[in-house]
């Protein structure tokens, strides 16, 4: 499979075969001795452009880059850059294109990474674009399922928490729809249910799923339980 110049912008861009390929490569990377790993990105530079701060995402990319022998440039919030001086988004990313071989971008504006991938001639990885996509998070979730169960097919997966606003559960559910014999159980308070848009897409793709309000009722024969944090600030009266 040729991943040369392929961007990672949205999990919706991926076919099942491509996801399988990435997960297989990830396993190989995990098993590779450090002395071999350090050769993979030697002499290369990653630009990590975090227009919105996210320490965990940024450090995970930088750690991967360093372990593979690469170097990195970039910023982790926009207060220290020339963006403050009125430089446009397009100007900023075009400048970093000259300095680097790959660009990781995080932005609160939805579609920022897609736009970057269309105007740059180096590969772009989306490290999160507002409420839209965070594809590497989804790939990591899929990798964890595969690692613990041996396969992603044939699993009963329970997903609980804030299913309404949590973008990771939307992306994960849609990605799982590419696999065979997946049963999904969604558990959330009624006010935080999976949006109709997502359930409609799952129905169109023939994925079987059920919806519960109560965790005790829902838990049975699950192979995987995926919990998300419920953000209290979304609740009326802080209940």
């Amino acid at each position: 499979m040729d991943f040369n110049m392929k961007h990672i912008i949205s999990i919706n861009d991926f076919q099942r075969e491509e996801i399988d390929y990435i997960l297989d490569q990830s396993k190989k990377m995990e098993e590779l001795p450090q002395k071999d790993k350090i050769e993979l990105f030697k002499g290369k530079v990653m630009a990590s452009l975090f227009f919105e701060p996210s320490t965990r995402t940024k450090d995970s990319f930088i750690s991967a880059c360093l372990k593979m022998g690469g170097n990195h440039v970039g910023f982790s919030d926009t207060s220290s850059t020339s963006l403050k001086k009125g430089e446009t988004f397009a100007d900023t990313i075009r400048m970093y294109e000259k300095y680097s071989d790959i660009l990781v971008i995080r932005h609160s504006i939805e579609g920022a990474a897609r736009y970057a991938s269309e105007i740059l001639s180096i590969p772009v990885i989306n490290g999160g674009d507002g409420a839209n996509q965070h594809p590497t998070q989804t790939l990591l979730d899929l990798y964890s399922i595969k690692k613990s169960k041996g396969s992603i097919d044939n699993n009963n997966i329970l997903i609980a928490g804030d299913l309404k606003y949590g973008r990771t559960v939307h992306s994960l559910s849609l990605a799982l729809s590419l696999f065979d014999n997946i049963n999904l159980t969604f558990v959330s308070p009624p006010s935080l249910r999976m949006p109709d848009e997502i359930t409609e897409m799952l129905r169109n793709r023939g994925v079987s799923f059920s919806i519960y309000d109560n965790l005790e009722e829902a838990v049975r024969d699950n192979d995987i339980i995926y919990m998300t944090r419920i953000q209290r600030e979304r609740f009326p009266n802080g209940a």
């Binding site: 988004f89 504006i109 939805e110 579609g111 897609r114 736009y115 507002g130």
Partner: peptide
């Protein structure tokens, strides 16, 4: 219609 969309911020 999404005010947080890049098409509302940049000339695209």
């Amino acid at each position: 219609p999404n005010p947080d969309c890049i098409t509302r911020k940049e000339k695209i």
